[in-house]
Amino acid sequence: MEQVELANKNDIVMDIVNVTLRFGGVKALSHVSFNIKRGEIRAIIGPNGAGKSSMLNVINGFYTPQEGEIWFEGKRRPRLKPHQIAYQRIARTFQNIALFEGMTVLDNMMTGRMIYMKSGLLSQLAWWGKAEREETENRLVVEKIIDFLEIQAIRKTPVGVLPYGLQKRVELGRALAAEPLLLLLDEPMAGMNNEEKEDMCRFILDVNEELGTTIALIEHDMGVVMDLADRVVVIDHGEKIADGQPDEVRNDQNVIDAYLGVSH
């Protein structure tokens, strides 16, 4: 029954077909294909320098691959600028936190709702009509996420002064504020202690289960990945070497070789 549902074309949020990305002569990705299904947590793993971040940047539209196609929500995605891709409701977090340091937590998250804010210059200048209305509407959504992530107390704190773990959480909040169809997480647990990791894991699972958000994440910590992910794709030297359930992947000979450094 489940198999049949998943086979439905509508349930594939993103399909990456035969993507190749080059920087000058260096191939960062070659002929990588995989898909992301609606409602799942999809992990992309691999050793250092395997091309995981490049993959995320391709999905995100920051890099444009030289070959291959990306299908999003059943449509082939044309070449877009990064800010246009945000309007397709793909949101992300960054490996090295990329918050707006001079702004408060609230403002950071409100910025995450940029794509829903459409009031004109004059309305904003007078703080009247649409500008004020849309500010309140969007504030409601953001406050819900603030509650969800349990960061009510630091709402009006400038993010620059927050500890690392909280900053990561705020960054997740900013991405969630966009109500994404696809959420990309770039090493959400990097540099955290165990407690912070557990918190973050719980938030990721909650986001997935309660909000029903589709998530693709890159992570180093294998233990975390195996617990979190529904399906895992393994990339090494820019090529896909395995794809499947965590258990299958864990026992895949190619994957073991890649991580242990056996030469091919």
């Binding site: 600028k81 800010h83 949101a91 918050l99 707006f100 340091e101 910025t111 940029m114 900013r174 966009a178």
Partner: peptide, 18 residues
């Protein structure tokens, strides 16, 4: 917010939709 996001981290701002 769009301006401040551009000031603080332009690449992140762009990816957010600025």
């Amino acid at each position: 917010r769009k301006w401040m996001a551009t000031r603080d981290m332009d690449i992140a701002a762009e990816i957010i939709g600025v």
